[in-house]
Design a protein around this nucleic acid. Structure first.
Lengths: 248, 248
DNA sequence: CGGGCGGTTGATTTGTGTCAAGGAGGGTGG
DNA sequence: CCACCCTCCTTGACACAAATCAACCGCCCG
């Protein structure tokens, strides 16, 4: 048995996962015609569901697959020389994970489910072959890579120069764009499937500093800090803050 | 005239830039057969030489081309809301620049020549078309993207957690791998086409901090700090330093 | 020769990490 | 169902790294 923590839901017959995909955000294949989409869909032979805390792939394991998150949330984490965790990102429904390991023989990091998470397994070599026969897919994949490059560069370039408070705000804004829930009363809520400690690590802060940053923002009336979610009370001061005092 | 600061060296006849490329590090096309290489080469219709300080492309200009650096050095820089410079990277012979802007309509940053620099202009839409007819090229481009993603992720994840001294060492090591000159007496030299201020900015430090970090390393006998180059005296303590006290 | 830019140095401040302790919440076992 | 424990989070006191402010130096260039 290749894995321990997962339950394989369905095996390939003539069934297509893609055609029955209920995900709000499709991972790939949105720009394909039905014919092409069918071809692409055939490459996806397995769909797995992981419990919270289970590893979707492990660092140093042989790299073979990308995984499209159908539902749930995932954190990607590596380890420093001394063993401390380093979190390089959080991913949600519609995201493709494993991209950072392309070009290596092994995964460069662990992917850990933050809640019950369902993923589709995409064999990378088959994806490459499909790219050669389906130009639209090739384009889509390249644009996906390009988006990742843009996003990561952004994170590097700005992240280095920002105060804790600002990094946190940008992160919340990002989460809100991904997952945000607007409510009738005008307040907006971001659910946090990850721990505060993970967020701190992702932002390059110690947990204590994150805690203090959250508190400061709460005092200023910008957010309301809950245990598993954060309410964004005032999106205006918000954007102002990000624009104004953005430098170190 | 589209540009001001450059001199167009040669116009397309039947001449192929690639076949006469003297660069030590080929940019792309290394894995192609002669036939394919010729096709790829045809897409490159212009080669430009820029003086030090000239812009190869400008932020907000329409994105159309990638540029392969044949010789010279380039810094990629954006601007924060308040106008301060943010440098996202330095690139050298064999590197492809403009990748960070793929998927946008406009360049996201300026590319500035750090010394006299010659680049080959690669129209991105033609590169995409070629990818669809030449699988080997498609693979090469994807691996290039993947490498960039790996490198940038690395920068994000580790950069945030490192001391100034360690960030500097990693940077020097990187430069040495790219450009290093080993000499008979065992010392190794890294040339710095960019200013110290640029390095500081790239590392997320203020110039003063960089200056102090350099001095500290010099006192410890690890490097010798010159105006336009740095000698790496002791590559062992070097690697030790990077491995040991690598955490904040 | 003078001006300006890039780089260095020192004094001081500020932000954030570290250490230590306490509290809240969720899960487990009695 | 309650008590306990454990993990995650918070809070405070303190230490330290790096930013800021200010001044100065060396160099290149006009």
């Amino acid at each position: 048995m290749r894995r321990h923590n997962d339950i394989e839901l369905q095996l390939l017959t003539n069934f297509s996962y893609c055609e029955n995909c209920k995900s709000q955000n499709p991972c790939l294949g949105g720009g394909l015609n039905p014919e092409e989409r069918k071809l692409f869909s055939r490459a996806i032979r397995h769909r797995f569901t992981f419990k919270m805390g289970a590893r979707i792939f492990k660092v140093e394991n042989k790299f073979k697959y990308l995984y499209a998150i159908q539902s749930g949330a995932v954190k990607i984490q590596t380890y420093a020389y001394d063993g401390t965790n380093l979190i390089s990102g959080f991913y949600f429904s519609g995201d493709l994970i494993g991209i950072e390991s392309i070009g290596d023989n092994v995964y460069r990091n662990d992917a850990i489910a933050l809640s019950t998470t369902t993923v589709c397994e995409i064999p990378f070599n088959q994806l490459e072959e499909l790219c050669d026969s389906i130009p639209a897919l090739r384009h889509e994949v390249m644009m996906l890579f390009a988006k990742k490059i843009r996003h990561t560069e952004q994170a590097v370039v700005h992240g280095r120069h920002l105060h804790a408070k600002l990094r946190l705000l940008r992160f919340l804004q990002y989460l809100y764009e991904q997952n945000g829930v607007s409510r009738a009363d005008g307040s907006n809520r971001v659910l946090l499937p990850m721990s505060k400690g993970d967020i701190a690590c992702y932002l390059g802060l110690c947990p204590e500093s994150l805690s203090r940053a959250l508190k400061k923002l709460e005092k200023e009336g910008v957010i309301r800090n809950r245990s598993k979610s954060i309410e964004l009370l005032d999106t205006e001061t918000y954007s102002e803050l990000i624009c104004e005092e953005n430098r170190y």
